[in-house]
Amino acid sequence: MDVAIKTIGLTKQYGSFVALEPLNIEVKKGEILGYLGPNGAGKTTTIRSMLGLIKPTGGRAEIFGIDTQANKVEAHKHIAYIPGESTFWPNLTGAETLYLLGRINGAVDNKYMAELIKRFQFDVSKKVRAYSKGNRQKINIIAALMTKADLLIMDEPTTGLDPIMEQAFKECVMEAKANGQTVFLSSHILEEVEALCDRIGILRSGKLVELGTLSEMRHLAALTVQATFENKPPKVDHIKGVSGIKVVGHQLTCQVQGSIDPLFSALVAAHPKTLLSREPSLEELFLSLYGEEEVRNKDQVS
């Protein structure tokens, strides 16, 4: 089975409110899929529907071909889940909690667990109520990774972690990918998604609006061009697709969408000293996508 996750028209409604519009998505085995969206877009609803914690209003989800509603236990044998919030029993210690979660899961790589405890600098002797938020999140991360499950589903997994632990987490995810594990990563940290994910899905108001690799999604935002001249920069505002022109001294910065040829010809004709172009980052793509929505909303109001 090459497909790790498959959703077929997965839908969730709360009364008349549509939390998730029919979602059709496929995640290949060994792939890391980033799942982006602002607060309330439906990311957690998607994950909880896939896990069978909430019942979809329509459609279904399959994990390695197993229907997650009809056969939850069988599907969960392939899954390890890292939620963004940790709710563990306050009177159990970290060691007891990891032991319990491992026993319930069935299969645990004890050697790898010990390694993870060391890498995340986690003190297992403390009671859960004495842990900081970040340390509680480490329980979630270690408990999931130590199972070496075929599929890792993560919902804001680095919540509360410091930058060093975030780095340790990224390394673990890359190792998981190298082991052939599949990762479904829902995150607000665009840099994390950009660094780790093979493909990205962007959710807006419960609807999947974009799905593809980062390079496939570059068309969503403009290319940034920066040029420095001996004298005054040439006028480019008449060129189709050019926007955001800024001139500081002899330096010109602008964005271009569509063909770059007309702009390039105009700049070369003025003999630039330096000429740089940069593709949009995921953050620029994301902001461009949501910026459009904001502008549309403003238009509707006006």
Binding site: T87, I104, N105
Partner: peptide, 10 residues
Amino acid sequence: YLDNFLVRPV
């Protein structure tokens, strides 16, 4: 707390 069980094979 229940989530901890139900996201696993329980």
